[in-house]
């Protein structure tokens, strides 16, 4: 195995580069089955992180994993399963998407932020769908979808995941 290239922080200046039109809208919000996944990114003092950016990756409602292009230029019809959302001044993010189905009833999330030296992985499970050890990763249902806060540090620190081979 060749040693991997290490990560580095996304830094403070990604705002003109990584976000793009339609990044957080995997489907148009007008679609009847559209749901909202939203929440806040918070630091160890409980303060909002206004310079974080999240990757979202998920299965379609029928449980299939989308393998189609078009995430960077959405046509309004193709569900690519991938999106990106930067936090706003109050540390809030939101995605407009579909409910994931099948064997992976969760949203896979990668977290990047200024001050965060390498990316973090987590999952936001649909309510009631997480295995016992990961129950804290269940999103909270609300009228239009699900809420899921990410706490980088502290008592209620989000459970972050490692998929390392060894």
């Amino acid at each position: 195995m060749t040693a991997p290239t290490p990560g580095q922080t996304v830094g403070p200046f990604f705002g003109f580069a990584l976000p793009y039109d339609g990044d957080h809208q995997l489907v148009p919000p007008t679609r009847p089955d559209a749901i909202r996944l939203h929440g806040r990114v918070l630091d160890g003092a409980g303060d909002p992180v206004p310079d974080a950016i999240l990757d979202l990756w998920q299965a379609a409602p029928d449980g299939t994993v989308p393998q189609v292009e078009g995430s960077l230029h959405r046509d309004g019809y193709t569900f690519t399963g991938w999106g990106r959302a930067a936090t706003d001044r109050t540390g809030r993010y939101q995605f407009t998407t579909l409910r994931p189905g099948g064997a992976a009833p969760y949203f896979a999330i990668a977290v990047f932020a200024r001050g965060l030296l390498d990316r973090l992985f987590t999952r936001a499970y649909l309510p009631g769908a997480a295995p016992a050890a990961l129950r804290s990763l269940e999103a909270v249902a609300d009228d239009r979808g699900f809420g899921f806060d990410i706490r980088l540090q502290g008592e209620d620190e989000t459970v972050f995941l490692s998929f390392a081979r060894d």
């Binding site: 994993v65 030296l117 459970v159």
Partner: peptide, 24 residues
């Protein structure tokens, strides 16, 4: 980084099919 790093070790998990794929 002082207030922006997790203090608990990452939870070791096997990836599901979803995480074994990448967006296209």
């Amino acid at each position: 980084s002082i207030l922006r790093h997790p203090t608990k070790a990452a939870f070791q998990l096997d990836p599901e099919e979803l995480e074994l794929c990448s967006p296209v």
